[in-house]
Simulated scan of single mutants.
Amino acid sequence: MRIEQLHEEFGAEISGINLIDAVSNADAFAAVRAAFEEHSLLVWRDQPISDDIQATFSRGFGPLELVKVGSVGHGTFYSRMNNIGPDGQVVPLRDMAMIVARANQLWHTDSSFKRLPALASVLSARVIPEQGGETEFTSTRAAWERLDAAEQSRLRDAVAIHSYATSRNKIDPGMMTPEEHAALPPVRRRLTWRNPVNGRCALYLASHAGAIEGMAPQEGAALLESLVARATEPGHTYVHAWRPGDVIMWDNRATMHRGRPWGGTLPRSIVRTTISASLADGLEDVLPELWAQRAAA
């Protein structure tokens, strides 16, 4: 297995081992898992990808999330993000698939708004336009480490409110259905998530976060916006230009990402599987209720 650094702060391309080998051999899996903990973002090129291969690889890291209500693939393990209709043709720009694509162009970390947040996401390229549609990533671990000691002390135990409606309302207040609103109430998350393997801390941010407990609404929203802007300053992001067969895995505890526009007139299809976090992944650190129990123990 070869590891090539993609950005000075995070990210690595893996070669010399495919996805199935990575989880079918104990030594290979240990090496991949160590690379994941160290680099937060892993890229494989030229993979013979399928739904089954992607799910098998993803399950090596933990239980898979079911796709939420209101999304294509609801009730399965596969979140299908594409602009290809049932007839095989590209959908109109006003189609919900394109509205969702616009929302995904906000900086976010997957599933921060769910009752159980995500450890990691695995995204595979199935149909890719020749230009546009890149995915941009940033390290919120590096962003945390760039803060001075006083800022870290002030933010370490702050609690943010995450809600799917917060990000969707930025695009279209009518985007969510009543069923989605009922299924996805706001949740509380600490503003930091400590990695239990290496002890490194990361800001836990997303466009889904809209308020901070104990702060006036405008003040909390402004602080969150400022932290996202600082985390994503030029020079601190990696932009991935997709090719068919690419697979990317990222750590939702320590990164943010966003899609980039591609116009929507050319076909594009990508498939995501999402791995739920567990106590072994430091889950108690980001859930205020569990963290308080641990602190009192």
Rank of each mutant, 00 (worst) to 15 (best):
T135H: 06
F137S: 02
W44A: 06
N198A: 02
A229P: 05
M215G: 04
A254P: 05
D46Q: 14
T232W: 12
G199C: 03
E145L: 07
A101D: 15
R190G: 11
Y164A: 07
C201P: 00
D46E: 14
T135I: 01
Y204A: 07
S58G: 09
M215C: 06
V32D: 01
F137K: 14
H74D: 10
R126A: 03
A142P: 13
D157G: 02
V271T: 12
E145A: 02
P196G: 04
A158V: 09
R115G: 03
L279F: 08
T265K: 10
G73V: 06
P178H: 06
V91D: 06
N169M: 09
A120E: 02
A125E: 12
H257G: 11
F36I: 01
L116H: 04
S269G: 06
D172H: 05
M249Q: 09
N18G: 15
D281C: 02
A30N: 14
D46K: 15
M1L: 15
Y204W: 10
T138D: 04
L66I: 03
H7Y: 02
E151K: 05
E284S: 14
L205T: 04
L279N: 10
D251C: 11
S124V: 00
V43D: 15
I128K: 05
S112Q: 04
Q89T: 11
P244L: 00
F113C: 10
T76N: 04
F137E: 06
P234N: 10
K114A: 14
A150S: 13
R33K: 05
G85C: 12
N82F: 01
N18L: 05
H7D: 11
E37Y: 11
H74E: 15
M256H: 13
S58W: 00
Q218M: 07
G282E: 03
L283Q: 13
P186W: 11
L279C: 10
H7Q: 09
L116Y: 02
L287K: 08
L147M: 07
M81P: 00
A297T: 02
D281T: 03
A209Q: 10
N198Y: 08
V127R: 12
E65Y: 08
I17P: 05
I270R: 10
G132I: 00
A231W: 09
I17L: 02
G245L: 08
R115C: 03
E145M: 04
E9A: 14
Q5L: 14
N25V: 12
V91T: 13
K114C: 03
E233F: 10
S124Y: 06
N198F: 11
R294N: 09
R258A: 15
W242G: 02
M256S: 06
A34T: 07
A160P: 00
A206E: 01
L119M: 09
R188P: 07
L283G: 08
P173L: 05
I161T: 12
A120P: 09
D172A: 02
D148T: 03
D87N: 13
M175L: 13
V247F: 01
M176F: 04
L155Q: 12
S24E: 15
D46H: 14
R94E: 15
L279E: 15
